[in-house]
Design a protein around this nucleic acid. Structure first.
Lengths: 259, 259
DNA sequence: TAGAAAAGTTAATACCAATCACAGTATGGA
DNA sequence: TCCATACTGTGATTGGTATTAACTTTTCTA
């Protein structure tokens, strides 16, 4: 009944040669076709535009047949979320393969994020905007690993940038609680040897880059007349500077943070 | 026929005492009730959960009657977008009224942004996540002024923070094109006297704070185990530092930005 | 080859937005 | 006071959606 049971069913063979049966091939094929059509609908009109009826129509199928492949609309969207996460991670990993200077490598990763988002705005929205139960919170067991890939790729490009300064103090790490939490996170990560400073930088990258991209996609920067590309590059430059310089300006706790 | 024609109709009186007629009072009342119920639906289940049928049902009205007040579902959502923008601006303005030190004032504004977003996550999503034609791009003539109020309040709290350093150089303003665009934007703003540096800081505030808030609302930070409040505060501290210190560390163009 | 599992069908339910023709009602002017 | 007009509301209808149930056909397997 549950989504799991439907996917389990496919792989009954355990130890034999993994040659899928004829039927399973067909099943996998239509499964992919459904997802592909859904992705087209998302690209065209956003997640809301995904219509099971529409998919069935273009596949010359009865609408009810879709439910042999997905328990419901949300299950389909959950699958797409994972797929999109992976597609983004592919892009970032490709851009982040070691080459050139650390600065150029990191810049390439950052630009890859924005480029991909601009090329697939609705896919970006699908994964980064959850509307209170729209197939996002579903299946976190699959989305979290998929999302982690991007973060790992980002951190990998960030580490060489910090270089020797990696172990130094860092802006934003004055709060020991934050440092502790980041240490705990590092232990669970695929990169447990990274110093907390690099992980913190990774978080700041993530939030800042997403901040610009997200507002750009929502056309919230157009009214200023500022070119988002320049704003984005300015943030990237700032992050590079922050990574390379352990503690910009000797200062006490930046502000009396307690409101 | 168009949305405008429906709202024009209400105000036929031009110079008389602005006492609205009995009928206009009733109309305004049901108008507000519709919007209030729609806002409840948004709070409960996000923008997608707004149902004209549902609203009509709880108002004991025929579904068709709604169309006497809004041309269609998107027109209703567009109105709500403006309302939500104003509500957010109210909150920010209230938090940003002059008091205490500039640091405390700015911190209050920043915290007000996050607090409001956490209290009204779906309202926040309504205005900051447009799904390719979901009543957001509609009526930019009303949304842009409403959105500007928040930015103006933010800039007002930011200016005293920069203080004497306001005219100095700033990180992220190495690109003269960006400076030029910001100058042009300043001329159109309600605060034309602010130096470009403060405006640039305002943009960075906007994108960075939104970056953290948006990811927090999407539960994209939970997997790290990092408390978003601490991360947010770290960003706020960083912005305060950046505002107070003209050019952190003498450096050439931060990175060779050309990829 | 017969039985079982899978895949697909039709039909039905229950929503939803939107439109139209029509009826009742309040308003403002003659 | 009366009436034309504009406003407000209703019922019926159209066409779209997700989802389920019962049934049939296809396909695999023992």
């Amino acid at each position: 009944m549950s989504r799991q049971s439907q996917s389990e069913r496919v792989t009954q063979m355990v130890a034999g040669e993994a040659r899928p049966s004829r039927r399973e091939q067909r099943r996998e094929q239509t499964l992919q076709e459904i997802k592909a059509l859904a992705m087209e609908q998302i690209a065209a009109g956003g997640p809301d535009a995904v219509s099971l009826n529409g998919i069935a129509r273009t596949m010359a199928m009865s609408p009810a047949a879709i439910y042999r492949y997905f328990d419901n609309r949300d299950a389909l969207l959950a699958d797409l979320v994972v797929e999109v996460y992976d597609a983004l991670a592919d892009e970032i990993e490709a851009a982040g393969r070691p080459f050139g200077t650390p600065v150029r490598r990191f810049t390439a990763v950052a630009q890859a994020c924005r480029s991909w988002a601009l090329e697939h705005p609705n896919a970006y929205r699908l994964i980064f905007q959850t509307t209170s139960g729209s197939g996002q919170d579903l299946a976190p067991d699959r989305t979290i690993p998929a999302a982690s890939r991007s973060m790992v790729a980002l951190l990998s490009a960030l580490a060489p940038l910090a270089g020797a300064a990696a172990d130094g103090p860092a802006q934003g790490l004055d709060d020991h609680r934050l440092v502790d939490q980041i240490r705990a996170w590092a232990a669970r990560t695929a990169l447990p040897d990274l110093p907390p400073r690099v992980l913190a930088l990774g978080l700041f990258c993530w939030t800042r880059l997403h901040g610009v991209i997200s507002l750009e996609l929502g056309h919230h920067l157009t009214s200023t007349g500022v070119d988002p590309a320049l704003l984005y590059q300015a943030e990237v430059d700032g992050l590079i500077h922050q990574a390379q310089h352990p503690h910009p300006g000797e200062l006490g706790p930046p502000g009396d943070s307690r409101a």
